[in-house]
Computed example of a mutant assay.
Amino acid sequence: MPRASAQQAAERTGARFARPAGSTACPCRRGLTPREFEVARLVARGLSTAEIATDLFISPHTVRGHLRAVFGKAGISSRGELVARLFSSWRPR
């Protein structure tokens, strides 16, 4: 199976990574990197670690690393808390 480009993967998952020229961060991502935000979005859709890895063409280990980073920034420790935070207002530490 051929690997899709990052752009094709983004289009397939509905990701929106574009930033205004000169911008270094998107305030809507609340301090998360684009990849952390994408992993969080897929968690909110109910995907497992393996499913997220397959969708983003990364390893499950990398998905877990992104989740650790998201959990640390949000001050949480579970996927359930992550989903709850995505639907409420929070600021990364």
Rank of each mutant, 00 (worst) to 15 (best):
residue 18 A to Q: 08
residue 30 R to P: 04
residue 28 C to I: 13
residue 37 F to A: 07
residue 40 A to F: 02
residue 7 Q to A: 09
residue 37 F to P: 04
residue 17 F to I: 10
residue 10 A to K: 14
residue 16 R to P: 02
residue 11 E to K: 11
residue 18 A to N: 04
residue 41 R to K: 08
residue 43 V to H: 00
residue 18 A to K: 00
residue 15 A to K: 01
residue 22 G to R: 09
residue 39 V to I: 12
residue 41 R to W: 03
residue 46 G to Q: 02
residue 40 A to I: 04
residue 7 Q to Y: 07
residue 28 C to K: 07
residue 25 A to D: 12
residue 22 G to Y: 10
residue 38 E to M: 13
residue 20 P to M: 05
residue 39 V to K: 02
residue 9 A to Q: 06
residue 37 F to L: 10
residue 35 R to T: 15
residue 19 R to E: 15
residue 39 V to L: 07
residue 44 A to V: 04
residue 44 A to T: 03
residue 34 P to N: 03
residue 26 C to Y: 10
residue 27 P to N: 11
residue 12 R to T: 07
residue 22 G to A: 14
residue 43 V to K: 01
residue 13 T to E: 12
residue 38 E to A: 05
residue 31 G to K: 03
residue 21 A to L: 13
residue 39 V to T: 05
residue 45 R to C: 01
residue 18 A to S: 03
residue 28 C to R: 06
residue 22 G to E: 07
residue 21 A to S: 07
residue 34 P to A: 03
residue 30 R to V: 15
residue 42 L to H: 08
residue 32 L to V: 14
residue 43 V to L: 05
residue 28 C to D: 10
residue 41 R to Q: 08
residue 19 R to N: 02
residue 10 A to Y: 13
residue 22 G to D: 06
residue 23 S to L: 12
residue 17 F to D: 00
residue 40 A to R: 03
residue 46 G to H: 01
residue 20 P to H: 02
residue 46 G to I: 06
residue 31 G to D: 03
residue 19 R to C: 03
residue 23 S to N: 02
residue 25 A to W: 12
residue 32 L to F: 13
residue 15 A to Q: 05
residue 46 G to R: 00
residue 43 V to T: 03
residue 22 G to H: 05
residue 46 G to Y: 02
residue 41 R to F: 01
residue 24 T to W: 09
residue 26 C to V: 13
residue 11 E to R: 09
residue 45 R to V: 00
residue 11 E to T: 05
residue 29 R to V: 10
residue 42 L to P: 02
residue 35 R to H: 08
residue 43 V to G: 00
residue 17 F to R: 06
residue 44 A to C: 10
residue 30 R to G: 01
residue 20 P to E: 03
residue 40 A to N: 04
residue 29 R to I: 09
residue 14 G to N: 06
residue 10 A to N: 12
residue 19 R to M: 13
residue 30 R to Q: 08
residue 33 T to L: 14
residue 23 S to Q: 08
residue 32 L to Y: 05
residue 12 R to G: 04
residue 46 G to P: 14
residue 39 V to G: 01
residue 10 A to L: 13
residue 15 A to H: 04
residue 46 G to C: 07
residue 17 F to C: 00
